[in-house]
């Protein structure tokens, strides 16, 4: 459906280098990355707004690399909604229909249906400044869908919403995708949004593609330390393979390495929530454990996280709140960390 081949975009202070993506027809695809990684630029290049320095963009097999935005049938929804302030909600939604040869009466009917579906019937005659943030976001989605595009591009659609509206809006997006079957590319820096909505995703960092594939693969099998950190795996530990075994924590912990044994140097990633911290080494026999010192306790949302120093390395673990509240775990105490084999993910060094 959409193929981005070796895309390079050069700006005075930033560049996107050699990014290749393949997005299937009808797919919900997420482009993830931290702020300033170039993900919006990649999305704008699909819309024809950021002209590439080199590379190709194909939509439905047609090379649109040099085609102007209006010839691509790709609608764009920005994070800041970008509603036309001088037009009413209905006028905003109907804005693009005349360029897609949709007759006015039919267009109005489509627009009103969309507004009704998105619970905006009460606001058809309002100007954007009289709308709430959530309403503005829904109007911008309705405006994009009203011209029946082949592709919908969403730039951080959930980042400006209050936490309580986020879950509702995720449902709205899911519903729109399942009902219309439209191809959606969503740019986000929040991996929870991608995990909830997208089927496949790509991670971009400093203008370069780090990984693309099934969202769950990215979350469970990141291929670089950056991707691991981005998807919440904050423990990336150096490891040495020798004779079919993997040595961690300067050889203090030796685990069977299986198929990874051919590499001499590698990295092992473990999610904080998969690491247990206990006062005594009371883990199940099949778990791997090592001793360390609990150096820090931090509140992480509603949970507690502990930083355990094991020799030269530190491991972050999600703690049992009861252990914190009862002072069973407190800073500077000697503890044991443990994790099952399934929690370990191997990466190239």
């Amino acid at each position: 459906m959409i193929q981005i081949q070796n895309l390079t975009i050069d700006l005075p202070n930033f560049s996107v280098s050699d990014v290749s993506l393949h997005i299937r027809k009808g797919e919900f695809f997420a482009i993830m990355g931290p702020t300033g990684s170039g993900k919006t630029l990649v999305m704008e290049s699909v819309a024809g707004i950021a002209p590439p320095y080199s590379g190709n963009i194909l939509i439905n097999g047609i090379d649109v690399t040099t085609a102007p935005p209006e010839d691509r049938r790709v609608s764009l929804v920005y994070q800041d909604h970008s509603l036309f302030p001088h037009l009413t909600v209905l006028q905003n939604v109907m804005y693009g229909q005349r360029y897609q040869n949709i007759p006015k009466h039919e267009g109005e009917s489509i627009a009103r249906d969309l507004l009704d579906t998105l619970s905006l019937s009460h606001a058809v005659d309002r100007k954007p400044m009289r709308l709430s943030g959530g309403e503005k976001q829904r109007v911008s989605i309705a405006r994009a869908l009203a011209c029946k595009p082949d592709v919908l591009l969403l730039d951080e659609p959930l980042s400006s919403l209050d936490p309580q509206f986020k879950a509702d809006f995720r449902s709205v997006l899911k519903d729109i995708h399942s009902r219309t079957g439209i191809t959606i590319i969503m740019v986000t820096h929040d991996f929870v949004d991608a995990l909830t909505l997208a089927e496949r995703a790509a991670v971009i960092h400093k203008g370069k593609l780090c990984q693309q594939g099934n969202v769950h693969d990215i979350f469970h099998h990141p291929v670089t330390p950056f991707v691991a950190d981005f998807v919440g795996i904050s423990n990336v530990l150096p490891a040495t393979y020798r004779n079919g075994q993997c040595m961690l924590f300067d050889g203090r912990l030796i685990v069977p390495a299986g198929e990874q044994s051919s590499n001499e140097k590698a990295l092992v990633a473990i999610r904080p929530e998969h690491v247990a911290v206990r006062e005594k080494n009371s883990f199940a026999p099949e778990w791997f454990s090592v001793s360390g010192t609990l150096s820090q306790l931090d509140k992480h949302g509603f949970a507690w996280r502990g930083t355990v120093r094991c020799g030269d390395q530190t491991v972050v673990a999600t703690l049992d709140p009861n252990a914190v509240f009862s002072n069973t775990l407190k800073p500077s105490m000697n503890v044991f960390i443990g994790f099952p084999k399934e929690a370990m993910h191997y990466m190239c060094g």
């Binding site: 764009l76 001088h86 804005y95």
Partner: peptide
């Protein structure tokens, strides 16, 4: 905001139509 013009283009308006319907008003 230049994004208003970008959105207009993505909705199918060319440069002149974008100027007349977004920038000029």
């Amino acid at each position: 905001p230049v994004r208003l013009e970008k959105v207009s283009r993505s909705l199918g308006a060319n440069k002149a139509q974008t100027f007349l319907r977004v920038t000029f008003p």
